[in-house]
């Protein structure tokens, strides 16, 4: 009975990995499995683990934007190839398999296709950036106008500017910086892969 209870033990860990840190995340999950904590489910920034035996498990993340009707076919292909599907978090799909010596255990067997994956990730980041970058100048213009005193007599408008528009502008600026940093990091990964001329 005690053993069964042990097997049913779960724990949830919060940890943030950014889009360009997939390899770091995979290694972390591998370390967790070695400690007997096996990934059970993923949330926005949370990971649920199930307690079990210590095992050497290889985790791999795939980035894929895919239509709902194709998900079954996609996952079945990975399962046929010996990968267990765990969960998905947005466009990230989590797979795992037992580590085996002298066996190629990658989702991508050539550089070209791996570069394609990172390219689509970069495109997604660029597309998400666009509306933020487009709206920010407008926000700042309004704030500057307010600070210049044009609407300082208008108390409600001033309150909206100070309490809402300004924090929003600062937040969106930080988000934009992070995304641009992400695009640069992903581009660096792509560049590193392209310098390897093998297909």
């Amino acid at each position: 009975m005690g053993v069964n209870e042990d097997n049913r033990r779960f724990k949830t860990v919060s940890r943030i990995f950014f889009a360009w840190q997939a390899e770091k995340e995979e290694n972390w999950l591998n370390e967790m499995s070695k400690k007997g904590w096996h990934l059970d489910n993923t949330g926005f920034i949370t990971y649920t683990f199930r307690k079990g035996e210590s095992e050497d498990i290889i985790y791999r993340l795939d980035f894929k934007i895919i239509r709902n009707e194709n998900i079954d076919d996609y996952i079945t292909l990975f399962e046929d190839a010996g990968w267990e599907y765990i969960s998905k978090m947005g466009p990230w799909y989590y797979f795992r398999t037992e580590a085996k010596k002298d066996k190629n255990q990658e989702l991508y067997s050539d550089n070209t296709s791996k570069i394609r994956m990172y390219n689509s990730l970069r495109w997604l980041l660029i597309i998400l950036c666009a509306p933020v970058a487009y709206n920010l100048p407008n926000l700042y213009r309004r704030i500057i106008e307010a600070l210049k005193g044009r609407i300082m007599d208008d108390i409600p408008a001033r309150a909206v500017t100070i309490n809402f528009t300004l924090p929003l502008a600062i937040f969106l600026t930080l988000v934009l910086c992070l995304m641009i940093y992400g695009i640069i990091r992903v581009s660096m990964v792509i560049k590193r892969m392209k310098s390897d001329i093998r297909e």
């Binding site: 292909l77 190839a81 190629n104 989702l107 296709s113 791996k114 394609r116």
Partner: peptide, 12 residues
């Protein structure tokens, strides 16, 4: 010699 990864194959 050629062991296709599922990610590579699905994309191809």
């Amino acid at each position: 010699r050629i062991h296709l990864g599922p990610g590579t194959l699905y994309g191809a």
